[in-house]
Design a protein around this nucleic acid. Structure first.
Lengths: 315, 315
DNA sequence: GTGAAAGCGCTAACAC
DNA sequence: GTGTTAGCGCTTTCAC
């Protein structure tokens, strides 16, 4: 493999001159520049990026920790990140964690080992206490709010969005409201329950089903909900695909939507548009874009992205 | 930043010994190993990965060129790639090309600059003649078949899948069949047209609408198709979201599916499951997994992944 | 078993 | 303007 020394030798100049040409330095004699470029061309030379990264201590690469890599919500965030990265000539490496603490730490170690200039944590498995020390080695931005000032945040106000959605259901006369969540132990689930208590009072345990990610999960959840003696008249689903599953099960039981059952989903996904399901759009693409911008700016700001509720026919 | 020299000095050994400990070499005296590990621990030291990559000439990172980063079909491939990469301790960098030839070449240059051990091309903008020379610098695997033996392939037989889908429609009595595609100039579109001609004879230009990617595109395409004097009785959509849009428009015009209009989609996506749309599943996740395996094995094999047709209520 | 020393391919301070 | 040279942080002969 030809390197910078070869080019220097063949062009009859020193390596510094070659380096200067490579980096578009101004003060290089026109003829030397040309002869260097000629040799580079002839030898089909490309500088070794690892050597450059090693010296510069910078890779223009950002790691994005995603719990799942086939989840539409996290795909939306990733999409936003990629948009911004492309604009700014950064590369994105996808780091699937599966909510494994060990995996997550492994990725943070890669930040420390200088592979990434920064890391975006879309959702975390570890405590902040474990994560924060790594912010010494690069910018860490979270897609969830935290008051720790070592960490930048591009987040939305989940709690308010839930409050507003529940309020909407209540205003349409629903008091027996059930909901689904992804993970029992997550922050979102906590906020969901708090918001529920705020609007509807004590939550009946049978009105909450966790572990819902896809259409099938929604279908099964609906089956459970609708077999309850006091069956809910409205369901909030943690994603439009889950909502789609609920919709399908309800339809299969000849229920009219929204007359017999109101459904509201989340994240404004294609299936929701297709099936006419109302949704709480947390604007995850924007969250991703903002997160990426913060890393690029090496900023530890806390930026709140507004959510919006899109009303369609299902409520 | 503490480096290997510091560790060596503090542990009272040479850098080679530290390196040996770091790489789990057998022949290191137990006590030296322990004292090195102790210092590493104390100093909170992590080796610089760029330096290692520079020396080893290998990064255990694979680049994946995707034309779009918010397209469900390419997301499926990426998902498969990520699965396999995770299993084998490789990292994946996402390279959005937008079908720009220049961007694509830029990414191939990164292969040459030693940033990636290999590249997966899910769909390409450049000619093979432009791409092939880069296979000298790392393994290149394509998700489309090519006979060039410098390039590994993890692909499906698109043409046969289209033939079979059209045959299915014909067997149900459809002769006026329309279809949508993504890009006029793509290989898939060519194969689609060829398969159409094979089954139905000459294609009427008004029975083909290109530029379809999402639900809205499908909706508009359906609007056009269904206003034709001789309107089609069946539509093949290049994706289940497009199919979903077609479905919605048809429903809005009080058409019965499949009695008044048959619809078949592609890639077995959630919206299709939700709406009960038959689909041609090209098993893109498997394509992605296989592509990743080929890069890891540095193989130039051609592996065909079987497709399958999932019949639901829309045909 | 262990250390000295020569690189990997590049940048940048410094001298001229 | 240009060349010399000392690194960046690590691996890996080679000799002992």
């Amino acid at each position: 493999m030809t390197n910078i020394n070869d080019i220097a030798r063949l062009a009859g100049v020193s390596v510094s001159t070659v380096s200067r040409v490579l980096n578009n330095y101004k003060y290089v004699a026109k003829e030397k520049r040309e002869s260097v470029l000629k040799v580079i061309e002839e030898m089909n030379y490309t500088p070794n990026k690892n050597a450059i990264d090693l010296i510069r201590g910078e890779t223009r690469t950002i790691g994005v920790i995603l719990p799942y890599n086939n989840n539409p919500a996290f795909d939306q965030i990733l999409n936003g990140v990629l948009n911004k990265a492309l604009e700014n000539d950064y590369s994105i490496t996808v780091l699937p964690s599966n909510y494994s603490k060990a995996k997550e730490v492994e990725y943070l170690q890669k930040l420390k080992s200088k592979l990434y200039d920064g890391i975006i944590i879309t959702s975390r498995a570890n405590d902040w206490e474990t994560i924060i020390p790594y912010s010494d080695y690069g910018t860490i931005v979270s897609c969830e709010y935290t008051q720790h000032n070592e960490i930048g945040c591009s987040y939305m106000d989940r709690y308010s969005s839930y409050l507003e959605a529940f309020q909407l259901l209540k205003s349409k006369g629903h008091y027996a409201v059930a909901f689904t969540t992804a993970r029992l132990e997550s922050n979102s689930t906590k906020q969901m329950i708090d918001a529920y208590n705020e609007i509807f009072g004590e939550l009946r345990p049978e009105y909450h089903i966790s572990g819902c990610h896809c259409l099938e999960d929604g279908y099964k959840a609906a089956e459970q909900f609708l077999h309850l003696i006091e069956r809910p008249t409205a369901i909030y689903a943690n994603g439009d695909e889950v909502a789609g599953g609920i919709y399908l099960y309800a339809k299969s039981k000849q229920l009219k939507i929204p007359a017999d059952l109101a459904i509201i989903g989340q994240e404004n996904q294609p299936i929701g548009i297709g099936m006419g399901i109302s949704t709480v759009d947390h604007q995850l693409t924007k969250i991703g874009e903002q997160a990426c911008s913060l890393v690029i700016k090496k900023s530890k700001e806390k930026v709140k992205i507004p959510y919006r509720i899109v009303e369609r026919e299902s409520v």
